[in-house]
Simulated scan of single mutants.
Amino acid sequence: MSRSLKIVVAGYAVGFPMGGQIWMMLTYVLGLTRMGHEVLFLEDTSDWSYPFDPVHGYGRVDSSFGRGILDDMFDRFGLKGRWAYNSELENRLYGMSRDKLDRFCAEADLLLNVSGVNPLRENYTRCRLKAVIDTDPVFTQVKIDQDPATRSYYQAHDVCFTFGHNLVSKPTTIPLAGIDWKPTVPPILLDQWMPLDSPGQGYTTIGTWDAKGRDVVIDGKPFSWRKSIKYETLIDMPKRVPGVEMELTFSGMGDDGLRFARHGWIVRDALALSQNCWDYRDYIRNSRAEFTVAKDQNVKLKSGWFSERSASYLAAGRPVVTEDTGFGTFLPTGEGLFAFETMDEAVRHIENIEANLDHHRRAARSIAEVHFEAGKVLGDMLQALDLA
């Protein structure tokens, strides 16, 4: 690194203060801080982002729950006072004074906009460079193509990164709206996901069962965003791998939870688990492996998307068996990481892992070290921005 940079990481944490989301935002801030940069986390509700409160189960004006989680996590990692939360809903700026926020933004070398959910207010965008990270490929590109306001939002950035690694390297029907997308992957703080000695218990995953209003249509063909549909084809999976515990830790399963439990799945509530960031991490670290599906949009169109949750499993030395989104174009598969398209393939991968668990655990950690280590991922991003 040639010099220390001032960086604003704009993200979404107080709005959804659950384990996976908090760890993701923390990783960008702490990862860049460890590289020697001065970093500030910024979140803005605009007029629509009512912060989710898991105690009540819905979004509320009162942001105290999420702010408490964020402040505690930042304090634990030496980042006290390194966040600002502007609540238009509460008509208040939390974390620091407005003058201090405006001054930092004006002096910043980079605004790194993770997931593109914050408004681009004039006082936030006085920095030298603006970059956005698309963490939900396909859905994002379709929305940009169909919605002029979203297109203008992304085009207001100097550089656009995407987790859709294959969007720029393979022919695709996904509309790119003339944007020069640059591939990236989710960074992981390896020291926070150290492998445990125990073999772990259960093939697990954590997520949202259903998400309405996010399906897309490309060239007249519908593509689903919902995982619930994908698991229906795998409902008998526990019977195919006797002696292996298969778990579904999701929010919003409703009656589906009881039905899947009758088919041998261990069903848990993701909201209850993820309210505590450390419980979320411990659940992954104590798992035997991850077994999960991916959104139909990424599977059928082979976007190359790979989730930060799966990267965390790998870092914890837990093998990952996940639906094929085309990530094999840039990640090694067959040892520690497995892509499947059918139940039969998934069964073979699980049997392979069980036959040589220690080997696949070491391979999983190695993949995380080579491909997802925060310093490398963030360093590559700064290099692409000519800031390294």
Rank of each mutant, 00 (worst) to 15 (best):
F223H: 02
K221I: 15
G220L: 00
T172I: 05
M194L: 10
R214K: 12
I218F: 04
P148T: 14
A149T: 15
D145E: 11
R214L: 14
P199L: 08
T172G: 00
L176N: 00
H165W: 15
G178Y: 06
P175Y: 06
W209A: 03
F139S: 13
T184S: 14
P183D: 02
D210F: 13
S198W: 00
T162D: 10
A177T: 15
Q155D: 05
Q146K: 12
Y154H: 13
T140G: 07
I144S: 03
R151F: 04
F163D: 09
A149Y: 12
P195E: 11
D210N: 14
H157I: 08
K170G: 00
K182C: 11
V216D: 01
W209H: 07
T184Q: 09
W181E: 04
T172Y: 08
V217F: 07
T204G: 02
Q146W: 04
F163R: 07
P175G: 08
D215E: 14
D180Y: 06
K221Y: 10
L190G: 02
K182R: 15
P186G: 06
I144Y: 06
G213A: 03
P171K: 01
V217Y: 07
Q201M: 12
K212A: 13
K170C: 03
V217H: 00
D147K: 09
P183T: 02
N166D: 10
Y153R: 13
P195F: 08
T162Q: 09
D215H: 09
H165Y: 15
T140R: 08
T204R: 09
G207W: 03
